[in-house]
Design a protein around this nucleic acid. Structure first.
Length: 310
DNA sequence: GGGCAGCGCAC
DNA sequence: GTGCGC
DNA sequence: GCCC
């Protein structure tokens, strides 16, 4: 159901709630058999209790069935990388019904074109061994460009998941002076070293050469979504934290940082909010060399990456 | 009724 | 400025 | 959707 709200209805907040609730209930040590078990849960309100009640009683959810019928073929359009809820509706209005229909449509963005072309492959899960191999391979290439650089696969791989949806690689160099030469590893001229077919590597990201979002083809495996981001050493811990996630944990920490300390936490640092009358600005980041330091500054216990799944 | 993180990029 | 993905 |  949360996919429906994400891909078609464009309601990210409902989507988030549904996703959180499903995982919350799933992670309970017992199977939910009665609404009494969830009625008091934080974040579970009237509507959700009602839905769970219906599911327990009838084994299905009318609201979901209605939505499915209503939404029909729009959902698959919205599940393409680069096509959101609004464009999905537009395309549907124009008569497109399947991903195949979009193959020869000229008015797609470059991201959408990639999303269409590799739709089936992108939707496959990636075994973590393959992510490890990819990380190793990228590390090897980066080493030739900037010896001594750090290369880490983040995302669900770092959280220990057995399979991943994409590959998320972070790069820095402990020697700040080498940072400039390091940034060039996201230039497509170098990135094509990572691919057997360089024409597939449509690079996104304009002026700043420190991020790559694209498609990666490796050792005859399916085409994979990959992000490669290069950060300066002094913000690396923040980037690692942000891109290890998961996103619900990020929201939680950022919320706490703001409410409890007046901080702003992002992949770029931990900033103190300063205000004078109406003006609000932020100081330079509080330095943290490791993720552990960030959690310390926020008065939190350090969670190992595999404990950051919800 | 507003906030729910906040950003950079393509267009 | 909007849509999108992260 | 939930919480305030």
């Amino acid at each position: 159901m949360w996919h429906l709200y994400e891909d078609v209805l464009g309601d990210q907040w409902r989507s988030l709630i549904y996703r959180k609730t499903v995982n919350k209930l799933r992670s309970l040590p017992y199977k939910v058999t009665s609404v009494e078990q969830i009625r008091e849960m934080y974040g579970v309100g009237k509507s959700l209790v009602k839905m769970v009640k219906e599911i327990l009683g009838t084994g299905q959810l009318q609201k979901l069935d209605n939505l499915k019928a209503q939404v029909g073929e729009i959902q698959v359009l919205g599940s393409v990388w680069g096509i959101g809820a609004i464009q999905a509706r537009e395309l549907y209005k124009k008569g497109f019904r399947t991903v195949k229909d979009l193959e020869n449509y000229s008015s797609l963005t470059s991201m959408q074109r990639m999303g269409v072309k590799y739709y089936d492959d992108i939707n496959l899960r990636i075994p973590r061994d393959e992510v490890a191999d990819t990380e190793k391979f990228v590390r090897g290439v980066v080493e030739t460009l900037a010896p001594g650089a750090w290369v880490n696969a983040a995302g669900s791989y770092r959280r220990g998941k057995p399979t991943c949806g994409d590959v998320d690689i972070l790069i820095t160099h402990p020697d700040g002076s080498r940072f400039t030469s390091l940034r060039c590893c996201t230039h497509s001229s170098h990135l094509h070293l990572l691919c057997s077919h360089q024409d597939l590597l449509a690079r996104l990201g304009g002026t700043q050469p420190d991020m790559f979002m694209g498609i990666f083809h490796f050792q005859g495996k399916p085409y994979r979504r990959i992000d490669i981001k290069v950060y300066p050493r002094h913000v690396y811990a923040f980037a690692l934290l942000a891109f290890t996630g998961n996103d619900v944990l990020n929201r939680k920490i950022r919320f706490l940082a703001r409410v409890k300390f007046g901080y702003k936490l992002s992949d770029q640092g931990l900033f103190i909010r300063e205000s004078k009358k109406k003006d609000v600005w932020f100081t330079e980041s509080i330095p943290c060399e490791t993720e552990r330091e960030i959690f310390e500054k926020l008065g939190l216990d350090y969670p190992e990456p595999h404990d950051r799944n919800w």
